[in-house]
Design a protein around this nucleic acid. Sequence first.
DNA 1: CGAGTTCTTGACTCGCCTCAATTTGAGTGG
DNA 2: CCACTCAAATTGAGGCGAGTCAAGAACTCG
Lengths: 245, 245
Amino acid sequence: MCIRKECSQPPSTKSETCRFPDRGICSGLATDLLERLNAIVRRRIVPADQYIFKHGEEVNSFATLASGVVKLTKTTAAGERQVIALMYSQEFLGYTFGDHHHFSAVAATTAELRSYPCQPFRRLQAQFPQLERRILELSLRDLDICREWTLMLGRKSSHERVAGLFSIMARRARESGSMPSGHNEVQFRLPLARAELADCLGLTLETVSRNITRLKREGMIELRTSREIIVPSIALLGAAAKMDS
Amino acid sequence: MCIRKECSQPPSTKSETCRFPDRGICSGLATDLLERLNAIVRRRIVPADQYIFKHGEEVNSFATLASGVVKLTKTTAAGERQVIALMYSQEFLGYTFGDHHHFSAVAATTAELRSYPCQPFRRLQAQFPQLERRILELSLRDLDICREWTLMLGRKSSHERVAGLFSIMARRARESGSMPSGHNEVQFRLPLARAELADCLGLTLETVSRNITRLKREGMIELRTSREIIVPSIALLGAAAKMDS
DNA sequence: CGAGTTCTTGACTCGCCTCAATTTGAGTGG
DNA sequence: CCACTCAAATTGAGGCGAGTCAAGAACTCG
């Protein structure tokens, strides 16, 4: 019962800014609101490994990630880094009610942003309930993902973690990329170096590397180069990670 | 800049259901909306260690926790349990757009719920933008907490984790309980057994126990019984956990 | 092609887990 | 009120998985 998540709506409002309706902020919005959003949007290119915003900085814009991959990171008082989320193309970045960011955002690859200045965006949000609702939907989705991640970090072995992350990445690559969806094999380029993978998984770079070789040995993955990965079967990889979703 | 989180609003709309304005769903809502909510609310008492809802079950209500403590849990395919969040008095529980729960909720102590049936609640939500906004605020808060937890599980030692959890619990106890706020020392009753603490922290019960004795030895805490904890200084305990917030 | 970075691999250490034995504490009935 | 019982917590001994330190191989880019 209850309102059902609308997954398969007709791609009617497919504008330039919204190519993947179920991920982006703009999906399903009325055309007049889309126009208002387009009126305030600004483009911004952030090269790989540069900050988009830093922990503690004042919030002055939100953004849709038009292309690229972005890491959200936090740091222990002891200085250890932890990636708390990976944001992929079309996802909405940095929304908060607070006036200061509680984490940092770093471009993992070159990131192309559609940036909405905070104040006019909030005015639109107050004016259009459908925008507020969309933000809520996306936030709840982020919350779900974060809790899944929590389970991973709390209870899984290093081998399961690496398999799990690769399985997630493979699925994203299959969705976003124009892959023949009938085919089972997925090939993609890792957006992260070994040390960054380690920061995602709460491991060290060496442990990540060892588990990559182990997955290779077990036939779960193949490496073209150290960044180019071939996954023969996502289902098999997901099983190795002991995932359910 | 941007809209500031309203923390110190006058406690004007203090109804029976809303004693802690900044945590609950009802805080700051107009009186007509509060009346509509009160019209659909139902009470429910759940004894300790019983499920409030289970992972995979259909969503049929949301609830404010009127008193008690609730664990939100997930389980690995391998069967290991992980607590992904602790909900305290006045917090809002189980909201989602989906029609099935993605995790379980278990009463840690006897839990008194104010339960809102899903369908009428969603109608009110569609009708009153302020309710939707409030849900968004709370969801973003949950997201922040979850990401802090992620950092803890990914990067902290067992000792830091136990200290961190106790420091969080002590702060909650000080807020909720009628403690002399001038006084530094906090005393509270643990809502969780050792095994449950372990499920929160991604550790084993033995490791939790060892670290409790260590904290005791270091003078960071005192135990009256195994469930009654005295924290001489939350600040010191927080420092041991290497927390920043 | 060469220089610097990134990745892999090895040897060793340490922290947390596992298994097991007490100890403590709460509840019950004599 | 005090033994008895059972569950929960503590403590110990030993093993294993992930971290640390270090060397060498493989990429990347000028």
